[in-house]
Design a protein around this nucleic acid. Structure first.
Lengths: 314, 314
DNA sequence: GTGAAAGCGCTAACAG
DNA sequence: CTGTTAGCGCTTTCAC
């Protein structure tokens, strides 16, 4: 009782409490977490499921989650799904049923997330990050993908761009991508430009370089002369930059470059790249704080946090 | 007994075993890990301690460790030390005493690692990665930093470089950095060039950009005309590339660039950068397999693995 | 072959 | 205010 700070609550005398603390120090005692977990049913573990922990975006989030949890004596268990729905299911089952995590933070790869509606998961609080899943009553912490996209495209238009090609990463149904495409389309329409499907290219996440190249050839063939490229993530931006160094794409050398997701590299390339940066640290901190508040009962209502982006001009 | 595959060992009849398996399937039963851990004293958790999990180098290692552990039904717990010895101590204590991890993989920030020699840690096997710690009987899996450095500097010299400036990241006592500096020095000496302290610059990891700039100014002031720069890690290489775009350093525009640690970005910069790439995936896989083998008793002797690097010319 | 029981270390309830 | 005890779910030992 003393160790758990419940000495007063249980009416232990100050003297006894001091004696207990003293003994703990002398014996270098630390309680057995397994017995504690067995008894209380709490694991003091939080699970983090992302598509790829080696992606700096997610590993930065992981780092910030970890530091928040550490302060509250919680631990973090991280797993990657490699964008596979099957693997995501397996990991959620494992973490909840077998590892008994007290809560879950998930960047889901699901198109249809009804999986999460099963009642046996309902006792474990979940906070979704990065991607909004189509679920009622889901807690999430995400970036304002629509707003960021709208802002940067509006900026390009204000600077005089007339034709902007947009390179989207698959799967297109992810809320992040959908929102970014919508931001692009609406910024155009607000400026009286109709959406042109030829200028919206789907780039498969498994062969980015090849698809970007194909997309550029396609633009050339159809005779388009875009004055700006908008890459919906940084991998595509990098691929575009690589392609634009090639002779066959010399026609595009004057094109303005914009990217969703800012990376250091954009400070070094000779080609100027403007970008939308995401509040990565904030996603980690905010989601873990939210989850801890739900676990401790401080937060009982559903919470949806949308963090704003930052336009970076160069 | 059946569940743990010890049915035959304990002499349970085939019939009963089948009935047990059947019931498990019907009831969707999964054993309680806390009770299991309490009873056996095993946690089925491995701890990974690195200096910064948001660094792609470490997060790629983490991903590969995770996938090896997953196959063996082990879980991973990741923590970052931010290069602080105090924090490393705290994390090791916590993981071993409180979390009861079955093993530890550590990229240590320690200069003097006697901390790890305490007998109360001796029951938990540890595999050190990335950095060699000055300990007898330590298991480790590291890159051949000396060899990689020696190879790339030798290449520069063969291509005609006469004066090569070397930019080292602090703390200089880390085995990785020490070995890279030694590789540089010995490659020079083998080619009859004496080491010149003026050309070896220490760059503090907390303010890389400023220190790189200072170092370049210093070279200018002292009238050096190096024909190659060797950055001992990729952050320094990036900072150098940024500086070299500035007018004040125009004198260095023709300098050859070499970097320890290859990154994607080097494929895009207009300045050609050659590099030494590390077998990152291999470090993760090899260290986790080694640790699991030690835990299961398959490996009883100390194991030191040194993985070779790859010279990347552009 | 199978059934019964002890005990890992903790928490919470209860008796005094 | 303090001491005792049951029981969380598992593994292992022992008796039959």
């Amino acid at each position: 009782m003393v160790l758990n700070g419940k000495g007063n609550q249980y009416g232990i005398s100050k003297k006894t409490q001091a004696a207990v603390l003293d003994a703990i120090a002398k014996l270098d005692y630390s309680p057995n977490k397994f017995a504690k977990s067995l008894r209380t049913g709490k694991s003091y573990f939080i699970g983090l499921i992302v598509t790829d922990i080696s992606n700096p975006f997610y590993s930065t989030i992981a780092k910030n989650i970890e530091s928040v949890l550490f302060e509250h004596e919680y631990n973090l268990m991280v797993c990657s799904t490699d964008e596979s729905e099957e693997r995501e299911k397996l990991l959620v089952e494992m973490m909840i049923n077998q590892q008994g995590v007290d809560g879950l933070i998930v960047a889901s790869a699901f198109k249809n997330a009804s999986f999460y509606e099963q009642s046996r998961f309902s006792r474990t609080p979940i906070v979704f990050i990065d991607r909004v899943v189509p679920l009622h009553n889901a807690n999430y912490v995400v970036t304002d993908n629509f707003g960021g996209s709208f802002e940067i495209v509006s900026h390009l238009l204000k600077e005089g761009a007339k034709q902007i090609a947009c390179f989207a990463i698959t799967p297109l149904y992810l809320s992040t991508i959908e929102d970014r495409i919508n931001g692009y389309v609406q910024a155009l329409e607000k400026n009286g430009i109709k959406k042109n499907e030829d200028l919206i290219k789907a780039i498969h996440f498994d062969h980015i370089k090849e698809d970007v190249e194909k997309a550029l050839y396609d633009l050339l063939e159809k005779g388009y002369k875009p004055d700006a490229f908008f890459a919906l993530n940084n991998h595509i931006a990098v691929a575009l930059l690589q392609c634009m160094k090639k002779k066959e794409f010399a026609k595009f050398s004057k094109v303005e470059m914009a990217s969703f997701d800012d990376i250091d590299l954009f400070n070094i390339t000779d080609k100027k790249v403007i970008s939308v940066s995401q509040p990565v640290e904030e996603i980690g901190k905010s989601s873990s704080n939210l989850l801890l508040n739900i676990i401790s009962g401080k937060q009982t209502s559903i919470s949806n946090v949308v963090l704003s982006t930052n336009l970076i001009l160069r």
